[in-house]
Design a protein around this nucleic acid. Structure first.
Lengths: 188, 188
DNA sequence: GAACACATGTAACACGTTACATGATTGC
DNA sequence: GCAATCATGTAACGTGTTACATGTGTTC
């Protein structure tokens, strides 16, 4: 429902290939929307048919050609219309929390390992966001409206990651207490 | 992919009707998974066919009959198998952040209004979670494993909502500054 | 008498994921 | 030689949303 508009919003900021967009959705824009390359190429096709984006083929050396997409006037119009409509609520899909809900059914270590894996991802992502934030701090204030938009979305990513890590600390502590208790009660 | 297991995890904790589950996904479990009643009734049908849940029809007075579902032994087995597999990453779908990314294209007031609407939702949800947390604080420690599972998932909801509200404060401030600047430059 | 909470479902369609498919270049 | 990065796509299948459908009891 919103993926096409997520793509338009990214292109409005900067021209990009499908491959670039896929990387954005996996990294810098990962807290906004997630999408696979298959979906992105499909949507770019539809957006092109609708006349909301256009592209030019750019040759590179040492790398394959790429289609660099840009938003059209009609595309910006459509994006603005969409932005003015009330947005739907976010949809939450957190498999990890299903695991947490059922954690009493499995070995605590399983969940602790899972938490550590996801902790790494969150730390990498947070570090990445903090780097971008540091660049913003070097820019003169007040920011342009475009820059402010990007900054606000970035701040959401930072606060989100920090909150997740804070929770993970609590969770790991509680789960490890339990492992220790079990070890005390059943020493081998 | 995980909705059936989210349902199994909820039923493992407490028997419920499709209607009850829909409410859970809309309220107490809203930070774990979101699902509509249509999807839930459909999945309950599939889970029943697979033999992972069973139900009994309960008559009530003043209210229509309901089917109260419970997890079966096979269902618990399947849930445990799923819990032990590495979980996939969460999928993010936040239409509001697309709006933020494109906020320079629209009137700041539009976005501020949107933020205020979602702020209310978050505050209600946070208050609800804090109430449940207060009940936990009245329980004797250490918590049973089942209770600890629920508590951990709850804490995630609380930290998530708080982080969102913190961000909304920042965002509203930045956006309102801009409205004031505009008013100074173009007084009527 | 209107709106809301309770309660359960089907059907059509849109969206998203997984698997498949290809091919060049660079670093180990 | 193997894996990784760059680059773009199609096909089959599964998931999720929107619209439709129905009916009772309670509160304003």
């Amino acid at each position: 429902m919103s993926l096409p508009h997520a793509i338009l919003a990214l292109l409005e900021n900067e021209n990009a290939s499908g491959y670039d967009l896929a990387r954005h959705f996996a990294h810098s824009a990962g807290h906004i929307w997630s999408a696979t390359h298959q979906q992105i190429y499909l949507e770019l096709g539809k957006l092109h048919q609708a006349g909301w984006v256009s592209y030019e083929i750019v040759s590179q050396d040492g790398k394959p050609d790429k289609k660099v997409y840009g938003i059209t006037k009609n595309g910006t119009g459509e994006l603005i219309r969409w932005l003015q409509r009330p947005s739907s609520q976010k949809r939450v899909r957190e498999p990890l929390l299903i695991k947490v809900l059922g954690s009493h059914l499995i070995d605590s270590d399983d969940l602790i390992q899972e938490l550590k894996r996801q902790r790494e991802d969150n730390e990498i992502s947070l570090a990445h966001f903090l780097n971008i934030e540091a660049e913003f701090k070097r820019k003169p204030v007040p920011l342009s409206l475009e820059q402010r938009s990007i900054y606000l979305a970035l701040r959401r990513g930072i606060l989100d990651r920090k909150a997740w890590l804070e929770w993970a600390n609590e969770a790991e502590q509680l789960l490890e207490e339990d492992v220790q208790t079990a070890a005390l009660n059943e020493p081998d």
